[in-house]
């Protein structure tokens, strides 16, 4: 099992619903976020293009955050989901420094927090909150090792990229172009 996400940049409108839904689902304090939206503008008027993409922890296969965590709080769960155990976390912030995607933040209650792929929902067979709220249905969540899954299908049929592959972390969020 290998959970991953594919996000269609052709459909995303940058509305940030994924951000609000994550906050209310996961009790993320106002002013912090586990996911966010990036807009990249390219070209000169009137030959301009925009890429909109919703970003979050990439649940990397080769994750520096897990490697550098001194307490083992940052760890892998089944399906490759990278999770921080809040009880074990001492808030040292080493993982924040090591993440090339700036995916983590210090929770005001003293631990480090980030996207969990909504593991509590996934275990019950639901999609993560961001995926299930997105008005444009531009996000696909699923199991890469299941050849019949929608995500495997879209990745097969569409050109895609991941972010900063050169960092060597093997990110598992893919952007459909």
């Amino acid at each position: 099992m290998r959970y991953a996400m594919a996000i269609d940049t052709r459909k995303c409108v940058g509305c940030s619903d994924c951000v609000v839904a994550c906050q209310t689902e996961n009790n993320v304090p106002v002013g912090f976020c586990r996911d966010w939206v990036v807009e990249v503008v390219d070209g000169t008027y009137p030959n301009v293009s925009i890429e909109l993409r919703s970003e979050r922890c990439n649940h990397c296969n080769n994750s520096p955050c897990v490697r550098c965590c001194p307490t083992g709080a940052s760890h892998f769960e089944d399906g490759g989901i990278v999770v921080v155990n809040h009880n074990k976390c001492i808030g040292c912030g080493a993982c924040i420094e090591s993440c090339p995607y700036d995916a983590r933040y210090s929770h005001p209650e003293g631990y480090v927090d980030k996207c969990t792929f909504c593991i509590h929902r996934v275990r019950q067979g639901s999609d993560p909150a961001c995926v299930s709220v997105c008005p444009t249905k531009c996000m696909y969540f699923g199991d890469l090792s299941d050849p019949n899954s929608k995500i495997v299908n879209v990745l097969k049929n569409r050109k895609h990229k991941s972010l900063a592959p050169e960092a060597g972390t093997q990110p598992q969020i893919f952007y459909l172009l």
Binding site: N27, V28, V84, H86, Y111, H120
Partner: peptide, 17 residues
């Protein structure tokens, strides 16, 4: 307070409310 429900007690940092 949004986010006031403490998630400290959950073992995997992903409380289901």
């Amino acid at each position: 307070v949004v986010g006031s429900a403490s998630s400290k007690n959950s073992s995997n940092g992903s409380q289901s409310l």
